[in-house]
Nucleic acid binder design. Sequence first.
DNA 1: AAATTTATCTGACTTAAGTCAGATAAAATG
DNA 2: CATTTTATCTGACTTAAGTCAGATAAATTT
Lengths: 291, 291
Amino acid sequence: MSFDPVSRFRRFSRAVTSEVGALDTSFLGRGRPLGAARVLNAIGHGRSDVAEIRDYLALDSGLMSRLLRGLEEEDLIATAPHPGDARRRVARLTPAGQQEFQAYEDLSNARAEALLARHPKPEALLAAMDLVASALGRDRLALREMDPRGPEARHCLSEYYAELARRFERGFDVSLSRDPEASDMIRPRGVFLVGLSDGMPLGCVGLKGSGGEVAEIKRLWVSPAARGLGLARQLMEAAEQAARALSIQVLRLDTNSALPEALQLYRRSGWTEIERFNDDPYPDLFFEKRL
Amino acid sequence: MSFDPVSRFRRFSRAVTSEVGALDTSFLGRGRPLGAARVLNAIGHGRSDVAEIRDYLALDSGLMSRLLRGLEEEDLIATAPHPGDARRRVARLTPAGQQEFQAYEDLSNARAEALLARHPKPEALLAAMDLVASALGRDRLALREMDPRGPEARHCLSEYYAELARRFERGFDVSLSRDPEASDMIRPRGVFLVGLSDGMPLGCVGLKGSGGEVAEIKRLWVSPAARGLGLARQLMEAAEQAARALSIQVLRLDTNSALPEALQLYRRSGWTEIERFNDDPYPDLFFEKRL
DNA sequence: AAATTTATCTGACTTAAGTCAGATAAAATG
DNA sequence: CATTTTATCTGACTTAAGTCAGATAAATTT
């Protein structure tokens, strides 16, 4: 019926290989071997721990050591013993290194912008890229507790509201809903968890507590790019675990029948339907789970 | 509103870089440097001309020469002077080389299959990959005249019919439509053009002639992955050029108001609406263009 | 406190990759 | 037919990348 999946995949591989190769060669334009450029970029992106960088770039310890020394001689980085463990070393950029790192960033950004600019539907291209990146980087998905007012959380929440607005027949207006206080989703009352893949937020869940034995699950959302990968289940499990750690004994949530994937998840993971427990105009289904 | 486009693009780059790197290292498992493996693969994929391979892989002529000699010593390839131009050389796989090439193919295919298998929606992932590959490989898009009965053409046509079935309220049944004879779309009566990006058919158009001065444009289709890139216009221009070369003076086509993108293209490129000229049940709009 | 493990460094390699200036021979051009 | 251009090859390099066996010093374990 359609062209063979494996050849479609491999056509994709060829296309990105040449793109990746082109970026690599553009990096060589700054008169530094690729290995050194990669280490500099890893440090610039916030990886300070030498062992972590070595692991991330899959370098031999000897090679890593020499690359670091080379960057030090160029006065682009400075290394120091790890404050807590003097066997380890940490690296950071010097002002000159910061500048050089920025030059590499500019190269990457310019490539990205050029490619996006020449595409007729950048948003569709980006959505496709998100999906592919999530599929390839599935194992790099990590859950992190974050401030619900931070940029990652705000991104998730605004996508969540936009999705509700699309899904609900009557639309969705946050101001009519019972928007939880951020402080109710921060320890010690609750938590806010974000699923991150390589820095990009792909899903979230909030645990809204009041200090008592009952807490509510709020704002469960998974990006379209990551659906089907089991992120929602992971988020819910992590939220339950956090609830137990906060000595919460009963979890509740409200939801809407226009969100069948979520309903299925709740029913399959031990939640039972209960009577309406609030007067929020949007939900029409209510669940409870005893921990 | 959403996470910055450039960082989404760059997250994608990081994800595919590590995937590409992993494939490269898996290639090293066969005890041959990557450069030699790449040359062997290029030959296996049908690139016989040495200059073409050198250009494709961006290799220095000296390096290329040594890699070829190495593969010859391993008895994986045989080279010979180009039959038409004795300065050039052509390379082909020996039976041993064929076998070795197949081993590399198996590695690539296994990776592709594994990745697709573990994804919950392989068709969505593939569609995203097609879109990205088309965006990145835009400049590699080439039009080729092909047999309308060949596999590429058949792929395009079946996608075309499937799309009509989705778009038309009453569906679409090829057998009710006036399906052109393949021989009417082959020289000297007509042509069939396919837009290929790195081997994958992304669009097509047929010129159906009868040997006379009037011919019809049929089966204009562009894959969703390639829409907006101007492929339809390219195909139509190439079809008109082919028509002129066949001394055709008037082009006609029938279409349907459920296909607004096509209508817009026709109106913008010099076609004028005319009276119905056939009794096919599907079209409701008819156009003509004098060359 | 001694033994072991861990993180990094050093030196002495090997191999791959890439560069460059001719050499050679077969077209193509004037 | 002489000259120029083109495609490939050869040899003599340089540089980058990767490997491996210790050395060193700071945790960690016993």
